[in-house]
């Protein structure tokens, strides 16, 4: 029998926070529960959008950080 899963379970699954056993069960449930599959697709799509919406800092600020690091010669506790 297929176990019932909630929307919260789907979110944990999408964010890779389910155990190996749960992952298998959710994947099985996704095949036979259209509503769950729809939620899964929505969450997955939103996750991808959030990744694409990441901002990229300017090259100027990145170069400035790299130059700072190169210029700093401190004795470290290796």
């Amino acid at each position: 029998m297929t176990k019932t899963f909630t929307q919260n379970d789907v979110i944990r699954y999408v964010y890779h926070e389910t155990s190996a056993k749960e992952t298998k069960e959710i994947e099985k449930a996704l095949l036979c529960d259209a509503k769950l599959e729809e939620i899964y697709k929505e969450v997955l799509s939103m996750k991808a959008d959030l990744n694409k919406a990441k901002k990229v800092p300017s090259d100027k600020v990145i170069n400035s950080i790299l130059n700072y690091s190169k210029s700093l010669n401190l004795p470290s506790n290796k």
């Binding site: 950080i65 700072y68 700093l72 401190l74 004795p75 470290s76």
Partner: peptide, 11 residues
């Protein structure tokens, strides 16, 4: 990142 650099370089 300045803080990161200092913390790592200062051990």
């Amino acid at each position: 990142f300045v803080k990161v650099v200092r913390t790592i370089k200062e051990g």
